[in-house]
Amino acid sequence: MADTSKRAAKLAREITKFAQSHGGSAEGQIAYVGQTGARIVLVGADGTWGDLMAPSVDSAKQAAESAGITVREAFDGEMAEKVRTGPYEWSRMAGIQVGGSSVS
């Protein structure tokens, strides 16, 4: 239990740092990914996105609450519309993911 609280506190610090670095705020969505735990997808006010892994959905929720971010039920169209992608993401999505060549 203490380890889970420590991990949640560390995640909260990482979420807070992300938010401060990307426009001063962020919102997130938490997804259960099986025995691995939960994925916290973050979108900063500037449109930058990132993710973190938590050992459980409960620890992810605890971290998000401690960091003071809005957590959405789903990564819906409204949240996706805020994401800003660059050449790296397009290269990864269009090249590697479909078996094509990656743009450098």
Score class of each variant (00 low, 15 high):
residue 79 M to G: 02
residue 24 G to A: 03
residue 65 E to M: 09
residue 28 G to R: 14
residue 8 A to P: 11
residue 71 V to Y: 11
residue 86 G to S: 10
residue 52 L to S: 01
residue 49 W to Y: 14
residue 29 Q to A: 09
residue 26 A to I: 01
residue 24 G to K: 03
residue 68 G to S: 11
residue 34 G to L: 06
residue 24 G to T: 01
residue 66 S to K: 12
residue 43 V to P: 05
residue 65 E to F: 12
residue 23 G to A: 03
residue 13 R to P: 12
residue 23 G to V: 04
residue 12 A to T: 08
residue 3 D to V: 13
residue 65 E to L: 11
residue 9 A to P: 14
residue 49 W to N: 13
residue 20 Q to D: 15
residue 38 A to K: 01
residue 34 G to H: 07
residue 82 K to A: 11
residue 11 L to W: 06
residue 85 T to R: 12
residue 68 G to T: 05
residue 57 V to H: 09
residue 33 V to M: 10
residue 36 T to E: 07
residue 27 E to Y: 00
residue 83 V to W: 03
residue 33 V to G: 03
residue 32 Y to M: 14
residue 33 V to Q: 07
residue 21 S to M: 14
residue 80 A to W: 05
residue 3 D to H: 15
residue 24 G to S: 04
residue 65 E to C: 10
residue 87 P to G: 09
residue 40 I to D: 04
residue 31 A to H: 15
residue 7 R to Q: 06
residue 5 S to I: 15
residue 6 K to E: 12
residue 76 D to A: 00
residue 31 A to T: 15
residue 23 G to K: 02
residue 69 I to W: 08
residue 10 K to L: 00
residue 85 T to L: 12
residue 44 G to V: 06
residue 82 K to Y: 10
residue 84 R to G: 10
residue 34 G to F: 07
residue 74 A to W: 00
residue 59 S to V: 07
residue 88 Y to S: 09
residue 43 V to N: 01
residue 48 T to M: 06
residue 14 E to N: 02
residue 28 G to T: 14
residue 80 A to F: 05
residue 10 K to R: 01
residue 12 A to N: 08
residue 44 G to M: 04
residue 12 A to F: 05
residue 44 G to W: 03
residue 86 G to D: 12
residue 30 I to K: 04
residue 84 R to K: 15
residue 41 V to E: 09
residue 82 K to E: 10
residue 57 V to S: 10
residue 72 R to T: 01
residue 32 Y to I: 15
residue 58 D to Y: 13
residue 23 G to C: 01
residue 2 A to H: 08
residue 82 K to G: 06
residue 39 R to V: 10
residue 33 V to L: 04
residue 61 K to D: 13
residue 53 M to G: 13
residue 60 A to G: 12
residue 27 E to W: 00
residue 22 H to I: 13
residue 76 D to W: 00
residue 56 S to N: 06
residue 64 A to R: 08
residue 48 T to H: 10
residue 74 A to R: 00
residue 5 S to R: 15
residue 6 K to C: 10
residue 39 R to N: 11
residue 77 G to V: 01
residue 12 A to Q: 05
residue 76 D to Q: 00
residue 77 G to M: 00
residue 17 K to E: 04
residue 47 G to V: 06
residue 86 G to H: 09
residue 25 S to R: 06
residue 42 L to R: 09
residue 48 T to C: 03
residue 58 D to E: 15
residue 24 G to Y: 06
residue 17 K to R: 05
residue 10 K to A: 00
residue 13 R to S: 07
residue 76 D to V: 00
residue 69 I to N: 12
residue 13 R to F: 04
residue 77 G to D: 00
residue 64 A to K: 05
residue 36 T to Q: 08
residue 40 I to V: 02
residue 4 T to R: 14
residue 74 A to S: 00
residue 22 H to F: 12
residue 4 T to D: 13
residue 2 A to V: 09
residue 81 E to F: 06
residue 78 E to V: 04
residue 50 G to Y: 08
residue 27 E to G: 01
residue 21 S to H: 15
residue 35 Q to G: 14
residue 13 R to I: 13
residue 79 M to L: 01
residue 46 D to W: 04
residue 28 G to P: 14
residue 75 F to P: 08
residue 10 K to W: 01
residue 35 Q to W: 09
residue 81 E to G: 05
residue 25 S to H: 05
residue 41 V to L: 08
residue 5 S to E: 15
residue 23 G to T: 05
residue 80 A to L: 07
residue 3 D to S: 14
residue 79 M to S: 02
residue 31 A to D: 14
